[in-house]
């Protein structure tokens, strides 16, 4: 018999691990990935693979040669960053830009702070915003969806629905198309339906809680609703706003990233509302047609403050007897 182990209680551990959570998120990403493969064809597959593989390689290189610590590339977090980064770019983006984006996401967004769990900003969004600012033309030229295409270069491009809204509202696709994903846009953001499916999976598996997505989407809906009621002729209705652009992707996957969101339920609600309001402000009055990434990054910066200010309700704090 080996020596008896002595340790503090508890002596049980739940069947949970970082890896399980991360692969759970990956499973929930499958529907949205399939939709993007369907509408953007080979280009989408190549961009996604490039992003994932380069994220893994950069994480490996940094852990092996710069940090010289344990290699944890298979915990799934780098894969998620890769997939989410790919979700945020058009399918015809030159591959070297994807690689640069991955490097920024993993290198600057995550590893500089100490790796998984220490990064204040969502790595995929850091990479995305870096690319958006560095390569504005390529990042905002979206191919039109064409089911199962194998063409990569010279695809027919077209503006997103949000861009349409600002110059020619009559060519906006139907809501049904937009909901399913038949519209121009970044890889992963097009299909609200697939994203919601993934979100429900994560809710059931208790990877995320409802607070952030619901408060995010609801605050976008309410805010744009007010603007729309004030002047229906100049503004789009709230339903349009929540099913276009990156709202669904942002609310379900980006804002709920555990590492960069608040931990107490109340804080999560504040965070979601903040993201929603900032998104709408940027969309309606900012220079960019889309503001989800900026809104989430800005709110990420507030997380430590929110965590400090909104503690969970303690047992025995307020006494209500009866």
């Amino acid at each position: 018999m080996s020596l008896l182990t002595v340790s503090g209680s508890p002596h049980f551990h739940a069947d949970s691990s970082v890896r399980k959570i991360m692969y759970g998120v990956l499973i929930s990403l499958i529907p949205a990935t399939l939709v993007s493969f369907y509408y953007f064809g080979l280009g989408a597959i190549i961009v996604t693979l490039t992003a994932v593989v380069s994220c893994l390689i950069f994480e490996f290189l940094i852990q092996k040669y710069m940090i010289k610590g344990p290699i944890t590339i298979w915990d799934g977090s780098a894969i998620i960053t890769g997939v989410l980064l790919a979700f945020n770019v058009p399918s015809n983006l030159p591959l070297w830009m994807v690689v640069v984006g991955s490097f920024v996401a993993i290198g600057m967004g995550k590893m500089t702070f100490g790796g998984l769990g220490k990064n204040p900003f969502n790595p995929a969004l850091v990479g995305r915003v870096f690319m958006l600012i560095s390569f504005p033309v390529e990042m905002t030229t979206w191919p039109k969806p064409e089911p199962l295409t194998t063409q990569i270069a010279d695809v027919v491009t077209g503006p997103t629905a949000l861009a349409f809204a600002s110059f020619s509202p009559e060519s906006i696709p139907s809501y049904q198309d937009m909901f399913i994903g038949n519209m121009a846009g970044s890889l992963g953001e097009i299909s609200a339906l697939a994203l919601i499916l993934g979100g429900i999976y994560m809710l059931v598996k208790r990877i995320i809680t409802w607070h952030i997505p619901v408060s995010f989407i609801a605050s976008v809906f309410v805010f744009t609703g007010i603007v729309w009621l004030v002047d229906p002729s100049a503004n789009m209705d709230p339903v349009f706003h929540i099913i276009t652009g990156g709202i669904m992707l942002g609310a379900i996957y980006m804002a709920t990233d555990m590492v960069t969101s608040p931990m107490a339920p109340k804080g999560m609600l504040i965070f979601g509302v903040g993201c929603g309001v900032l998104t709408v402000v940027i969309r309606l009055w900012g220079a960019y047609p889309e503001g989800v990434s900026f809104a989430i990054l800005i709110m990420n910066a507030f997380v430590p403050l929110i965590d400090r200010g909104f503690k969970p309700k303690r047992f025995g704090e307020e006494v209500k007897n009866g």
């Binding site: 931990m263 107490a264 303690r314 047992f315």
Partner: peptide, 28 residues
Amino acid sequence: ESERVPMQNCIRCAKCISVCPMGLEPFF
């Protein structure tokens, strides 16, 4: 069964907060 799971960085998943019966923030 007596082996503990290897320790990793806190990923701020907030599970400890949601299970604490006293409403504390164990990670913090």
